[in-house]
Design a protein around this nucleic acid. Structure first.
Lengths: 193, 193
DNA sequence: GTAGTAAGTCAACAGGTGATGACAACCCGG
DNA sequence: CCGGGTTGTCATCACCTGTTGACTTACTAC
């Protein structure tokens, strides 16, 4: 579906932002290889040529999406905040409403394209830099890196699970208990072994 | 790299098997969209046209890979066996050597292509049928489906984690402790809530 | 030995992809 | 009013994809 817009004002900054937003939306719902530049341009109400012009290549565009400041910030907040309440934050993220513009979308962008030959390296780098490393740094005791990776596995699993099947629980009561269970899982993942 | 074989004996059954094996190998290492028919044919030492001829379409070929009897059987053994030792089997699968032809490869085939528009539905169906459903059926108490899905999330996360970063632990001692931890995670995921 | 069928080969197609460069429209400073 | 740089448009390229149909080769049954 292509929306009919009034002629776009000649504003390069706004156009770039629109392309970036459209790309974010597409990459959050499909893999790097599946998403086409023409789709993104259409969503943004922009000529496909402008995408290449402003962002260089599709790969560069994906990198730009991956390194959006808001995303970096949101994921940063999640993992670099107080370690004592980390399990709360993670459980909240996983059980929160899926249609919101939220941190889960940032993970979806990465997880959708983790199997693509072109995008995998970029994604891995971001995950390591923004997730694994800060968590490992915040942990005390032995095997911090290993335990951070156990947590990463847990989060990845829950998010992919939610993408595949939808919410774990709709009933508010059950949802609280699920939230509680996820917190236990987080703590078990991070515990010394 | 294309191997030079002696001229393939005219044997349709063996050719189909070779194609299937090559497809399995490719799909275990890259997503449905990334893998090309010409690659598969080259691995199998076969003309690309034969792939279409014998399996119809690429989609049908992927379905054939997904429904290989050995795979069904292996995943079936994993989940339909004695529920008391389920955590052991799962932990073993996750910490076992990655380069073996093992059950992990079956999961990789599915997880690599879960983000592809074409293959996602097939993958979801197989996961539900072969994993979630048997586990839910083997559980007792309330919310069996939800708890089976929690286990699914755990497995998916661990396998993707291993694909991204390699083995959790190389040291045998540490590995046993990781194995133990994974068993605890499995039991926590399946526990009533 | 020869016809008929099965198996494998080859070239090509139609459609889609990312990317490019020439062109037109616009805005702004002079 | 008018030139120059910016912004947007269009047609098109080169490449790659899955798939097809016509062709050649080999095997088997009679």
């Amino acid at each position: 579906m292509v929306a009919i817009y009034p002629p776009r004002p000649r504003n390069a900054e706004a156009t770039k932002a629109a392309i970036l937003a459209a790309a974010r939306g597409r990459f959050a719902r499909a893999s790097y290889d599946t998403v086409g530049i023409r789709e993104i341009a259409s969503d943004a109400g922009v000529d496909p040529a402008l995408v290449s012009r402003y962002f260089g290549s599709k790969e560069d565009l994906f990198a730009a999406v991956l390194n959006r400041p808001e995303k970096i910030e949101r994921i940063g907040d999640l993992f670099t905040g107080d370690i004592a309440t980390l399990s709360t934050r993670i459980a909240d993220m996983i059980v929160e409403e899926p249609d919101d513009e939220n941190t889960v979308e940032d993970f979806l962008i990465m997880l959708n394209s983790i199997a693509s030959a072109t995008a995998a390296d970029m994604v891995r780098a971001v995950i390591f830099e923004r997730c694994d490393r800060p968590v490992a740094a915040a942990l005390t005791g032995p095997h911090t890196e290993l335990r951070a990776r156990m947590l990463g596995a847990l989060i990845v699993g829950h998010i992919m699970n939610r993408t595949m099947w939808g919410d774990l629980a709709k009933d508010p009561d059950l949802r609280t208990r699920v939230r509680q269970r996820i917190m236990e899982q987080v703590e078990l993942s991070l515990a010394e072994l």
